[in-house]
Amino acid sequence: MNEILTTIISKYNYWGFILLMMIGLYAMMVKKNLVKKIIGMNIFQTGIILFYVSIGVKKGATIPIISHGHGKEKHVIHAAEYINPLPHVLMLTAIVVSVATLGVALALAIKVYREYDTLEEDEINKKIRDQAK
């Protein structure tokens, strides 16, 4: 019983992110509306961003900004006192890039709407098939 509890406590963050990713994947595959697909893509990205940020966590450590960073006297810096900065760096850029990809995706959706007057996938397919005839 105790073992199961420790497993849950040490792993439940990953399960949460996997749940988010799967919600996003489901929305991208099954939903017919293009805007809902784009929202699904964003949920997927959020899951990955949270996953990376939680990788950087260390128990008992603080944010990666060195205290007593000013002044002349030297302090010894232990790596165990600060959380891992690398996932934060990667996700910092990934958040902005995800906003940019969201913008491009929405621009493509507007373009599709201009062409076919709808954002529903099956109606777009029907119109394409009608045009081919």
Binding site: S10, N13, K59, G60, A61, A79
Partner: peptide
């Protein structure tokens, strides 16, 4: 484990 100080991500370059 979540928050483990010796996890692979926190041991090599960081």
């Amino acid at each position: 484990d979540w928050g483990h100080p010796a996890s692979p991500a926190s041991t090599h370059v960081s």
